[in-house]
Design a binder for these strands. Structure first.
Lengths: 246, 246
DNA sequence: AGCAATTTCAGTACGTTGTACGAGAATAGC
DNA sequence: GCTATTCTCGTACAACGTACTGAAATTGCT
């Protein structure tokens, strides 16, 4: 990976000040042929279409018709590009300007919005754990969530915790949903067969391996219900948990 | 990445039958100089010591004193090695042989155990989303959790969902804890300064940017309490949510 | 107008990765 | 011994992130 700077291998990320502040164009020098927003948008489009692994500096540069190394005048490194991508799609959130006052309903809606966003950008839940700074769009979602939670009777810390708890839940659930989808809707049969193999393996090992509870659980769950319904059910349980007294 | 097989870029993973079944040694041919368990253990040790990024095929091979390509007689690819690593550390779980009957207490204990495991293997929470098959050790944890949940008055599906809900929560929370730790305990000051910069940036943008709720929340959270306490609090709220009627 | 300073552009090149390939080495059964 | 089978591992390759470098394009100053 050819790291230059630090003493050990730890990566240190990017100064958020420099990253998110709108630095004005320098008045001298060759004018830029592209801009950060366009590059970020193209990277997002690429990730949406072909997955996060397809987002290489070469590919992104090719898409906007630039030399590979030209990207580095706009973005210090790939890690930062990812950071920009995450904040970029966070701007797609369609949130009401004001909370309705029914914070449970608002929270539910927010979670649905987050889920929809992650389905539109399937690479997002996988990328979130790598997020290290917080851009303006992400910040707007925070602000809205905190506003929603204002009448919920939680202290400040609990409100902040609730946000990450909720995002964490949505993110890990969508990750699960996507894995399911990928296996079922595969164009080549390989992945579908794999799911079958997985299920067969599970059942066989549960049956003969002395795992009675697992065997029973698997037996009871025949065909999966609509994913939307599962999500709703879990979300309700989640929100119920948040309401409890601290 | 030099993919050979499939039509598109989608990776298809590994047949769980072949992966987890104990295939007996073939009676002919040169005897293996190593074994899968030792390789997996070495990979885990490496990941524990230097992070997941340090786990390269070359590094692992070097550690056990083998040529790089020799690994491929034991493991079809790196992805599978990761899968083996995950199941390997799952075997470190110290679980009671029987649930106590108080399922809330058991669930709490289980979550603590999971958290401890992830702190011992800091790469684990980041690797979990990539998990595609379920090994015997993971299966044992499943079985135990389902046994714990038996008296909780949930149907089979809810019991399965609860498991992934709980793991998802623990995993995303530990991810957060680790990020915090890394920033605070950094040997070179860079990361710590970065955290400061982050906080400064947050406060400034919240104050002047018309984000009143965020500003207020940040003001209220001065110094963080012990991580253990935060975890306990969130966990209780989590478990409370699970108890609610479906 | 010309020159200097500054900034972007992009080709080349390096180190590192996962792993395909294939020639040798070591075993078991004949 | 011979042959079939299996493990070993040096070499090689494609793809990656990105350091380096010199050319190109612009503004400000003289």
């Amino acid at each position: 990976m050819a790291r230059t700077g630090g003493s050990s291998g730890r990566r240190t990320g990017v100064d958020p000040e420099l990253l998110w502040s709108r630095a004005e164009r320098p008045r001298r020098g060759r004018p830029p042929a592209h801009d950060r927003a366009a590059i970020t948008a193209e990277a997002v489009a690429l990730a949406d279409a072909e997955g996060l692994a397809a987002v290489t500096m070469r590919a992104v540069a090719g898409r906007i018709g630039a030399g590979t190394m030209s990207l580095y005048s706009y973005v210090p490194n790939k890690e930062t590009l990812l950071e920009l991508m995450i904040d970029h799609v966070s701007g797609d959130h369609r949130l009401p300007s004001e909370p309705s006052g029914d914070w449970r309903a608002d929270l539910r809606q927010l979670a649905h919005e987050q889920r929809a966003l992650m389905h539109r950008h399937p690479w997002l839940p996988g990328a979130l754990p790598a997020q290290r700074t917080i851009g303006p769009n992400t910040l707007a979602v925070w602000e809205y969530t905190l506003a929603v939670l204002a009448p919920a009777g939680l202290d400040a810390r609990a409100r902040l915790e609730t946000f990450s708890l909720l995002t964490g839940f949505v993110s890990s659930h969508v990750l699960y949903e996507l894995a399911q989808e990928r296996a079922i809707g595969a164009e080549d049969r390989t992945a579908g067969d794999l799911l079958d193999a997985q299920a067969r393996y599970l059942r066989s090992v549960a049956a003969e391996g002395g795992l009675p509870h697992l065997a029973q659980a698997l037996e009871a769950t025949g065909n999966d219900p609509a994913p939307q319904a599962v999500f709703d059910r879990l979300l309700d349980r989640m929100i119920n948990g948040l309401t409890a007294a601290t």
